[in-house]
Design a protein around this nucleic acid. Structure first.
Length: 263
DNA sequence: CCTATAGCCTGACGGC
DNA sequence: TGCCGTCAGGCTATAG
């Protein structure tokens, strides 16, 4: 699930529900991979509050009033759930924060592909991960986007998904961006002319902004988009050609063989 | 630098 | 109903 629009939606959800409440207890599934232990996390969280949030690519950060940051990455299946006392803990809860008001925030994921961590130095964390600029960052203007794309010879879709180049785009939104920009996903990046790069940039921003606006709910996206039709055998809403499926780097790409030109 | 593959995990789904 | 293989919106490590 979680690409930039989903993570941004989780961030707003956390903001709306879980800020400025004292954490009285934290329970981390000890089977979660990573450096942090349940005890270490409890020591950092208990008695503290989450005071604000931020996001870079697919990473969500919650600042504590100690100045440290809780880091949450959702892998392929993660999400957040906030609930009151009589409700049962959601199945597959990997981290649960208990607040003094009797409410709870759960990080829920059926798989252990995500990450829970702490840092004292947020820019340092982003740097160590090697993340490129966030796909919606104001600083990533057309000029900066051009420079990030230049000197690359690989295929455009995997490049859009490369978190070290641009952070936040995953398999599904990369397909959507290529579809709306009418670019074949296997096009070599160095074969894209200036107009094509501009089109990919403006399409990327428009697609992500719109998806954030509808809280990443595909059913609220325009029916002219690829995402609501991204399944075997469905047809391009623009020209009615059947969408094609190919594998690239182990991931499935959907595209319209008629609308998306290859250069 | 680029590509493909395997691995980390586990549920859902289709076929037999 | 059960078993089995395949696939899935993440990322990393490794080899060619």
């Amino acid at each position: 699930m979680p690409e930039l629009p989903e993570v941004e939606t989780f961030r707003k959800y956390l903001d709306a529900h879980a800020l400025n409440q004292v954490i009285c207890r934290s329970r981390l599934d000890p089977a979660m991979p990573g450096r942090i232990t349940p005890r270490g996390l409890s020591a950092a969280l208990e008695g503290r509050k989450l005071t604000s949030t931020s996001r870079h690519g697919k990473y969500l950060f919650a600042r504590l009033n100690s100045g440290r940051h809780l880091i949450v990455h959702f892998g392929m299946t993660g999400h957040l759930h906030y609930y009151e006392n009589p409700s049962p803990e959601p199945t597959y809860t990997k981290l649960r924060l208990d607040f003094v008001n009797g409410r709870h925030l759960s990080y829920v994921s059926s798989r252990k592909l995500g990450e829970i961590a702490l840092t004292d130095n947020l820019p340092g964390f982003i740097e160590d991960k090697g993340l490129g600029p966030d796909a919606l960052a104001p600083a990533l203007n057309l000029r900066a986007f051009r420079s990030v794309m230049s000197g690359r010879s690989g295929k455009i879709k995997p490049l859009l998904m490369n978190q070290r180049v641009i952070a936040g785009i995953g398999n599904l939104y990369a397909d959507e961006i290529c579809y709306q920009a009418r670019i074949h996903p296997e096009t070599r990046t160095d074969k894209l002319d200036e107009d094509a790069v501009t089109s990919i940039y403006t399409t990327m921003r428009r697609v992500l902004e719109r998806s954030v606006k509808v809280s990443a709910d595909f059913s609220r996206l325009p029916p002219t988009w690829l995402l609501p039709h991204r399944q075997r055998g469905s047809k391009c809403p623009r020209c009615r050609a059947e969408f094609q499926r190919i594998k690239m780097g182990g991931r499935t790409a959907y595209f319209c063989p008629a609308c998306q030109i290859r250069r």
